[in-house]
């Protein structure tokens, strides 16, 4: 029976691609999955625009206007949107800048920091504008499931995706629940 393949889109916002790497870590099982899923917009493909998909995986928190736009695009196109990893869910390591004012951060990096040459804060319109803080994705759009971990293990990804192949709700095993 030729089943319809589940369309999955993925993206990394303010993240380190570690979650994507971990996802790829499911190794040979990826081949199994391959019969059942296909990738839409994702760093794994070269599709630049998200079109209607069944599942969207979001890695990384929301640190700039561009992140917000991508996240909204995913929300608009994905039936189920999943926050993957500590950064998406809590802001994670990039959110360490949240303890400072944005101005302080930028001044430290571009004006006053050690080894700064040609001190000036970049203002090119090509650059995504920074938000005052790094936000968890669920503060910006509705998220359907969360997969914590830094990164979540390959097994955790499987536990998340496999049930959904059959339209089931995923349930993370207790031993897969960790925040680091």
């Amino acid at each position: 029976m030729a089943e319809r393949k589940l369309k999955i889109a993925t993206t990394s916002l303010a993240g380190c691609f570690g979650c994507h790497m971990s996802f790829l870590d499911i190794d040979e099982k990826l081949m199994l999955l391959n019969d059942r899923i296909e990738f839409n917009r994702s760093p794994l493909t070269d599709i630049k625009q998200c079109s209607p998909s069944d599942i969207g995986l979001i890695e990384g928190g929301v640190c700039n206007a561009d992140n917000v736009r991508v996240l909204r695009e995913f929300r608009a196109n994905c039936t189920i949107l999943i926050a993957v990893g500590a950064c998406a869910i809590t802001g994670g390591v990039p959110a360490m800048r949240n303890y400072f004012d944005l101005r302080e951060c930028l001044e430290e990096v571009y004006l006053n920091g050690t080894g700064v040459t040609n001190p000036q804060i970049p203002s090119d319109t090509e650059l995504p504008l920074l938000l005052d803080k790094v936000y968890p994705v669920q503060e910006v759009v509705k998220i359907d499931y969360f997969l914590p971990g830094c990164p979540p293990s390959a097994d955790a990804f499987l536990q998340l995706l496999v049930p959904q192949l059959d339209g089931q709700k995923p349930q993370l095993a207790a031993d897969q629940l960790h925040y680091d």
Binding site: R103, P122, L130, L131, Q138
Partner: peptide
């Protein structure tokens, strides 16, 4: 959203003196 995103860009707009379309949500 939990936050006012447009307002969350205000500081950066001030620092960079930007007001182009991409500087707003």
């Amino acid at each position: 959203p939990q936050i006012d995103l447009e307002a969350a860009l205000e500081t950066a707009r001030q620092i960079t003196h930007r007001d182009d379309a991409d500087a707003h949500l």
